[in-house]
Design a protein around this nucleic acid. Structure first.
Lengths: 213, 213
DNA sequence: TCAGAATGTGAGGGTTTATCACATTTGCAA
DNA sequence: TTGCAAATGTGATAAACCCTCACATTCTGA
C-alpha cells in the first residue's frame, strides 16, 4: 500500500492509482471513497454503481475520485485486491502445517466452508468476481490469485506425494482451485439447500483428486 | 421464434424481441444485425460492442435495430440462445446411446474435446459466457442450459447406477457440468499447452466422479 | 386500388464517464 | 513567521453511449 505504483508508468497503467495519497487527509478520503463504492456495489452491483453516487456518498467531488482512481474499474480493482490479499493470508495459514492426508482433508474442508460463508456474506466479493471475466485486468488478477493459492496446495501435495510429477500436481491444484471458485459461484446462485449439497459434492470430488480415495 | 412473446408484457420483458419479424425482408435484416453483432463481439467483446456500429455494419439504421431488439443485452441474449440450442442437440446426440461405463467414458471424453475446440474457435461464445455473471438474464439462461445438459448425464447415470440416490446423481451431474464450463474458460485463457493439460485433468476428475475409479 | 399493418430512419433526449482549468490546503525550508 | 511548490479539492463541461419518437416508406390482403 505504501509503494508508489506510479514508479512504473509503462506496461499499461491499468487500474493503478493515478496518484497515491501521501497526506493523512487524502488517505482518509480514499478510504471513504472505497467504503462508499463497496456499499453501493453491495446494494446494486458494480455495474450499477455510479461514479457520481460514490463521490456524493463519500462526501467528495467527482474530481477527487478521479484524482486517485484513473477510472471506474480501478475502484473495483482496488477492492478486489484487498480481498485477494486477505484471503491469501487465510489460505496460507490454513494449509501451512498440513502434514498428512488426514490433515489435508480437514484443512481443505474447513477452507471450503470458510470460502462458502464468505461468498454468502459478502455481496461485494461475489459481485466483483462475477464481473471478472468481462474485465481483462480483473481476470488477470483472479488468475494470478488462483495460481498463488494453488501453489499452497502444491506445496502440501509435494510433501504428501514426493514421487508425483510436479507438473501434474501443479495442473491438478490449479484446476481444483479454479473449480472451487466456480462451485462457490454456482452454490450461491441456487437455493441454500442445493447450494450446500453442491459444496459438499465439490469437497468430495476435490479431495478424491487431492488425497486419493 | 414465432410466438409473440409480447403477449406477456408483465414480468419484465427481458430480452424478448420487441416485435418479431414477419416479412421476409425484415427477417433477413435481423439476420444481418445478428451477424454484425457477432462479428463485433468476436473482435472486441460484447462490452465494447456499440449499437451504432452494429447498425452501420448491418447496413440498417439505429431505429431498425431497436425495432427488433428492446436493448443491447437482447442481441447478446439472442446469440447466446442459438448457441445453447445448438450445443444441447449435440450433447443429447452424444449421450443418447451410452449403455455402459466404457461407453460413457468415450462419449464424455469426446464431448469435452468438442466443447474445448468450440471454445477455442468461437470467440463469440467465449465472450458471451464470460459476461454471463454480470447479466441476470444471461445467468439464468446459462443455469437453465447447464441443468438441461446435466439432465442428459443424469439419465445415463441412472441407467448405469440404478441403485444410487437420484438427488445425489443430480447434484453430481450439475456440478460436473458447471465445472466443465469453468475448466473450458480457464483452459482457453492460458497458453495452449497448459490448456490441454487442464482439459485432460478435468476429464480424469469428472470421469472418476461419474463412472468411478 | 387502398387502408392499415409492418418496417425503416436518424436527429435528439437523457444518462454516465472522465477531463481540466482553476481554487484551496499542506509541508517545509529559509 | 513567511513564502512557495507540491498535494489536494472542485464542478462545469466535453465526449461517448443507449435508446426514443415522430414521421416516412413498403408491404399485404381484401
Amino acid at each position: 500500500m505504501d509503494e508508489k505504483v506510479a514508479a512504473k508508468p509503462d506496461q499499461a497503467a491499468i487500474a493503478s492509482p493515478r496518484r497515491s495519497p501521501s497526506q493523512q487527509r487524502s488517505r482518509e478520503r480514499v478510504e471513504r471513497m472505497l467504503a462508499a463504492a463497496s456499499a453501493l456495489i453491495a446494494e446494486q452491483g458494480s455495474d450499477a454503481m455510479r461514479m457520481g453516487e460514490v463521490a456524493e456518498r463519500a462526501g467528495v467531488s467527482i474530481g477527487s475520485l478521479y484524482q486517485f482512481f484513473p477510472d471506474k474499474r480501478a475502484i473495483v480493482w482496488a477492492l478486489a485486491e484487498r480481498y485477494t490479499a486477505e484471503s491469501q493470508a487465510c489460505i496460507a495459514a490454513a494449509l501451512k502445517d498440513v502434514g498428512d492426508a488426514e490433515g489435508l482433508r480437514r484443512a481443505f474442508s474447513e477452507l471450503v466452508d470458510i470460502y462458502y460463508r464468505l461468498f454468502l456474506a459478502e455481496p461485494v466479493m461475489r459481485d466483483i468476481w462475477s464481473g471478472t471475466q468481462a474485465d481483462k485486468a480483473l481476470r488477470e488478477l483472479e488468475l494470478a490469485d488462483s495460481r498463488a493459492n494453488a501453489e499452497f496446495l502444491v506445496a502440501v501435495l509435494k510433501r504428501l506425494r514426493p514421487a508425483a510429477d510436479p507438473v501434474q500436481l501443479e495442473t491438478t491444484a490449479f484446476l481444483v482451485w479454479q473449480m472451487g471458485e466456480a462451485a462457490m459461484r454456482l452454490a450461491i446462485s441456487v437455493d441454500r439447500e442445493e447450494g450446500g449439497r453442491l459444496v459438499e459434492a465439490y469437497k468430495r470430488m476435490a479431495l478424491r483428486e487431492l488425497v486419493g480415495e
